[in-house]
Write a protein that binds this DNA or RNA. Structure first.
Length: 504
RNA sequence: GGCGGUAUCGUCUAGGGGUUAGGACACAUGGUUCUCAACCAUGGAACCGGGGUUCGAAUCCCCGUACCGCUACCA
């Protein structure tokens, strides 16, 4: 087992910035935290990192929370549920940061920097041009405390910088990568308090993770280079760093970090396209993790039971929509029928408002559910997403006598077959699988036509299409819906209309 | 540029000093006395390159290459 199973109870956190939608890459980070917490009987904290007041919005925070809930990634402490270490929004923890910043200043671990943005940018550009590491020069480090205070009194804007020790190796043991070492010579003194008084990321995380007693920090690989700075801040504050685990990034098919131009990237979009949450969760978990025995289809709680951060892949993974689609099909197949009706209903309503014939949405409210339930088996297993279901089953409603007659005319023995079939089912009433088989058999005996030449015309007569779900499945659905909704002819009626040749 | 990370079928991955290098998605072919789809069967498909260590390297070490990240008063 991983180091996670030893020592104090696991406390992990997911700390999104509320600056937009929840990206699937971040959702995966949240998921891995959740898996560790649930697998170890630990605690998952939701912390909102909204120190970037320019871009953070409450709407985004609400959206992220909604997406996490939809995915089933529950948290134990957070801005909405509270917990023993409030508050859980960084914007509400400013006093805490000020306090710790003061400590660093007082102990000589931080100093005021008065350099202007333009000045900094010039130096940066110059360093880059000279092929030198573009780190902060440390110019203000030499300022005396008294002089700095005087300039601040005078109203000069200043940022607080953390002192990076000279010539030292900083090593931390990454749970997924093993020991990682950085030398301090490549790090400039990072800003920990911006000139507007707000805490900078590298400082706020340290204070928060320490104060919230976080034991494991599981986050994206993009933070790995920040980690040594944070370790140094822990040290300066006399705090013990948590255990780190850095997850590789999620890439698009072109091997570039997954972004909008690759299509859907936010959890929200996947939901809108008709993916089931359990499919997305299962897929995301397998992006970088595997239980090791080839098992792939697993419920979230089972994955949690088997999850081990140490088994997480070191390399970046390409997001494969095909495999996600396969999983989604699977989860639609095993979904409880009642639940699937609830999930599919909104798509029938949304798409029914379009101008495409007698849509389900026009059904009497009480009957819509039953109609969708009757028709759902035709689509399960045949479509990738909930969104595609109405299109797949619309033939049940949209049967059109003229179209069917036209298709039938193209069949060599079309009329002959249908005439015989109609006679065979004349008094059968609603078709069942049994009576359908019997009528087809009779039609074959009468006409001598069999196989595809027999069934194809029947298919056209019943569905108005040349292909589609199995007739055995379609027939009961058509008849159930015909009984429920006005204007939908039953199977028997469809056949009779064509057989009597009244079309056009 | 510097620093850090990563490298097994097209993709996700298992394995890890001696294996016919395994599975899944996708793909191809066939089957299911009605078609797509689904389902089932079969098949093609991989250890980045070069050195070293070793009886033996895809596996350990080094170098190179490629890709990714960081190098912000964004997180």
């Amino acid at each position: 087992m991983s180091a996670a199973s030893t020592g104090a109870p696991v406390r992990v956190r997911f700390a999104p910035s509320p600056t937009g939608l929840l990206h699937v890459g971040n959702a995966r980070t949240a998921l891995f935290n959740w898996l560790l917490a649930r697998g170890q009987g630990g605690t998952l904290i939701l912390r909102i990192e909204d120190t970037d007041t320019e871009r953070s919005t409450r709407a985004s925070e609400d959206g992220i929370r909604g997406d996490l809930q939809w995915l089933g990634l529950t948290w134990d402490e957070g801005p909405d549920v509270g917990g023993p270490y409030p508050p859980y929004r960084q914007s509400e923890r400013l006093d805490l940061y000020a306090d710790y910043a003061r400590r660093l200043l007082d102990t000589g671990h931080a100093y005021w920097c008065f350099c202007s943005a333009e000045q900094l940018e010039r130096e940066r550009a110059a360093a880059l041009a000279a092929s030198a590491p573009p780190k902060y020069s440390g110019r203000c480090r030499g300022l005396s405390r008294a002089e700095a205070e005087a300039r601040r009194e005078a109203g000069e804007p200043a940022a607080l910088r953390f002192v990076i020790p000279v010539d030292r190796d900083v090593t931390f043991d990454d749970l997924v990568r093993g020991p990682v070492t950085f030398h301090t010579s490549v790090m400039g003194d990072p800003v920990i308090v911006r000139s507007d008084g707000g805490p900078a990321y590298n400082f706020a995380v340290v204070v928060d993770d320490a104060l919230m007693a976080v034991t494991h920090v599981i986050r994206g690989e993009d933070h790995i280079s920040n980690t040594p700075r944070q370790v140094l801040i822990y040290e300066a504050l006399g705090l013990t760093p948590p255990t780190f685990a850095h997850l590789s990034l999620v890439l698009g098919p072109d091997h570039a970090p997954l972004s909008k131009r690759h299509g859907a990237t936010s959890v929200n979009e996947f939901r809108a396209r008709g993916y089931l949450p359990e499919a997305l969760v299962n897929y995301l978990a397998l992006l970088g993790w595997s239980p090791g025995d080839g098992e792939e289809l697993m419920a979230a709680d089972e994955m949690a039971r088997r999850f081990d951060v140490a088994r997480v892949s070191h390399s970046a993974a390409v997001f494969d929509t095909d495999k996600l689609a396969w999983m989604n099909r699977h989860y639609m197949k095993v979904c409880d029928p009642e639940r699937l009706v609830d999930l599919a209903l909104p798509w029938f309503i949304a798409q029914g408002t379009a101008d495409r014939g007698p849509a389900f949405a026009k059904a009497p409210a009480g009957k819509l559910r039953e109609a969708v339930a009757a028709v759902l088996p035709l689509a399960v297993g045949a479509v990738d997403r909930l969104e595609e279901i109405p299109e797949r089953v619309k033939f049940v409603l949209e049967w059109n006598q003229a179209d069917a007659a036209r298709l039938l005319a193209a069949e060599p023995d079309g009329l002959t077959v249908i005439a015989a079939f109609a006679e065979a089912i004349a008094d059968a009433g609603p078709l069942t699988r049994e009576s359908f088989r019997a009528a087809a058999t009779k039609a074959r005996e009468v006409t001598g036509i069999k196989g595809k030449a027999l069934f194809h015309p029947i298919r056209v007569a019943l569905t108005g299409h040349e292909s589609g779900p199995e007739l055995d499945l379609a027939i009961p659905a058509i008849d159930v819906v015909a009984g429920l909704l006005d204007g939908v002819p039953s199977c028997a009626v469809r056949v009779r209309l064509l057989a009597t040749g009244t079309a056009d």
